[in-house]
Nucleic acid binder design. Structure first.
Length: 271
DNA sequence: ATCATTTGACCGCC
DNA sequence: GGCGGTCAAATGAT
């Protein structure tokens, strides 16, 4: 446990250093751009645009990863606490028995912070919203669209947690036991950029594990995604830092995921 | 007309 | 009693 924490600390530190270094490089490029306002300078700046875009995205990724690593710590603690809650049932309800509802469940929860309100590829129906005491923003509650048809227990709530820059926290509770939610899910295709010689580092939460070129959902056995090469070659995969929530894919491979993108975070590191 | 969202009341837990 | 989570009637959008 102690080793785990120090390893995570190290990972957070590395992410911050990576972000700082790329920001430095970006600053240097911008200074050069500023001092070259003639025609040749503008042309050179245009050539540098892909690098600038790449650098900005790397900085964003670094911040996102740091937040994810940070959140992973707090989520473990929260799950431990919530695991102790026991549902007492509906004791003295004034409502008819059919309207009696459960409150806290044993379902595991995990949160994802996003700068934008993004779709997670699954189908949800909003069933309520609430202003919470500690936050000035309204929290929206969603349940799986197939709750009634397939008795799917998955729920989530979304809350804005920060004004500037905007940050939204989506907290998922329970896993989708329905199949319908995934039928219309657009397969996510991640392509590397061979010309840049880039590689991919994929990180995923504890609900998935990597095994023999396949990403498998722990909760839903029918959910898996194989990693294959576009060139009919064996795909080279390494597990950095012995962290089994991450895999490093070398260039020229293609992935088709039927896993919700918000549960699987992709990061690209240019070569 | 149908379906999704909003809203206020209800309920369990602390 | 306060707070957060859930329900279903009312309302709005298509």
């Amino acid at each position: 446990m102690e080793n785990n924490n120090s390893g995570r600390k190290e990972a957070i530190e590395q992410e911050l250093i990576r972000g700082r270094d790329v920001a430095k490089q970006l600053l240097e490029v911008l200074i050069i751009h500023k001092s070259n306002r003639n025609e040749e300078g503008i042309e050179r700046s245009m050539v540098m645009m892909p690098f600038i875009e790449d650098a900005v995205s790397k900085i964003l990724i670094s911040f996102t990863n740091t937040l994810l690593l940070f959140n992973r710590d707090t989520q473990h603690n929260r799950s431990d606490e919530e695991g102790n809650h026991i549902h007492q049932g509906c004791k003295k309800s004034k409502r008819p028995p059919t309207l009696c509802y459960k409150r806290k469940s044993f379902a595991p929860t995990w949160s994802i912070d996003n700068a934008i309100l993004s779709e997670d590829g699954l189908e949800w129906r909003k069933y309520g919203q609430k202003k919470t005491k500690d936050c000035r923003y309204i929290r929206s509650y969603y349940k799986c669209s197939y709750k009634n048809e397939e008795d799917c227990k998955a729920i989530k709530h979304v809350q804005r947690i920060q004004e500037d820059p905007p940050l939204y926290r989506t907290t998922y509770s329970g896993h989708h036991t329905c199949k319908s939610s995934f039928v219309n899910y657009p397969h996510m295709k991640l392509e590397s950029a061979p010309s840049l010689g880039s590689s991919k580092l994929l990180s995923f939460n504890n609900n998935y594990y990597y095994n023999n070129n396949t990403l498998q959902s722990k909760e839903m056995k029918h959910l898996s995604s194989s990693i294959s090469s576009t060139k009919q070659e064996p795909v080279e995969v390494t597990i950095p830092n012995d962290d089994h929530n991450q895999i490093h894919l070398l260039s020229d491979c293609e992935l088709d995921f039927d896993i919700p993108p918000n549960l699987l975070h992709s990061k690209f590191y240019g070569g």
